[in-house]
């Protein structure tokens, strides 16, 4: 198996409160890995450790190692010599609530990520913006509204805009935190289709509440409970022959 992210003994705290306990997990390249588990089990926290976002809040702390084997970076992203900004540039993130920049146009919402990542050439930016919007299945819907505010789109369009923004600067991994939880079934299925499409070029890690969603699109699924990784396996295996009793109770819906 070709591993892109290797998490070793990850622990995380909010102030004094520990919320992740010795999580170890290997994420395969060009696959969709889903993270499921009951509310409050630490899925979001785990995802935010992968691009060093968790530590931004004063008081928060992370221990352990995460090895990232990217094209231009190989090593432990929590090494003291590593610049978190560089790590974030190898990863794109899509948040639970769509968060386009409201004061920027649809076009600039995507272009800004390119400018941040050092692309200056106007023609190239133009090309990539259009391409990313197309990849996110959004271009047809917004091609006459490129210069309207990013906040003027519908919720589902905003989330696809955020996906376009996250893939535009060509990261290797895309982290998604319940990207469809605020959307209707039509928008949800569009985004699911899109993710399956995207895994040819990107590695995808998606947090989801929705087990059917994990079953539909994920190649691998991790089940977390109370800050611990309980089981990690190919999706079919996890859903059909769970090895852990907790996993079984959770996926059969017999959870307190």
């Amino acid at each position: 198996m070709d591993i892109i992210i290797d998490v070793k003994n990850l622990n995380a705290w909010y102030g004094e409160k520990q919320v992740l306990y010795n999580v170890s997990l290997q994420i395969p390249r060009y696959n969709i890995t889903a993270i499921i588990g009951p509310s409050g089990c630490g899925k979001t926290t785990f995802l935010r450790c992968l691009n060093r976002l968790h530590e931004l809040t004063p008081g928060n702390r992370v221990e352990g190692e995460i090895y990232f084997y990217g094209k231009n970076f190989k090593g432990n992203i929590y090494d003291s010599k590593v610049d978190p900004v560089e790590i974030r540039r190898h990863m794109g993130m899509v948040f639970q609530k769509p968060n386009p920049f409201p004061m920027l146009s649809v076009y600039d919402n995507v272009a800004i990520g390119l400018k941040i990542n050092g692309i200056r050439d106007k023609k190239k930016i133009d090309e990539i913006v259009m391409d990313s919007l197309k990849k996110a299945y959004l271009l047809d819907e917004v091609k006459d509204a490129l210069h309207k505010s990013g906040a003027s789109l519908s919720g589902g369009q905003q989330q696809r805009l955020c996906i376009a923004r996250a893939i535009a600067y060509n990261p290797e991994v895309i982290l998604l935190d319940e990207p469809t939880s605020a959307l209707d079934p039509v928008a949800t299925s569009k985004i699911e289709q899109l993710l399956v499409e995207l895994k040819r070029e990107y590695t995808i890690v998606i947090v989801t509440h929705n087990m059917q969603q994990a079953a539909r699109i994920a190649d691998y699924t991790a089940f977390m409970y109370l800050g611990k990784l309980i089981e990690f396996a190919p999706t079919e295996e996890l859903f059909e022959t769970p090895k852990n009793e907790l996993t079984e109770r959770y996926i059969t819906g017999k959870f307190g």
Binding site: V85, E86, R88
Partner: peptide, 12 residues
Amino acid sequence: SIKEAAIALGAM
């Protein structure tokens, strides 16, 4: 969420 969007893009 807006500040985090910028940081997650790798903004300095």
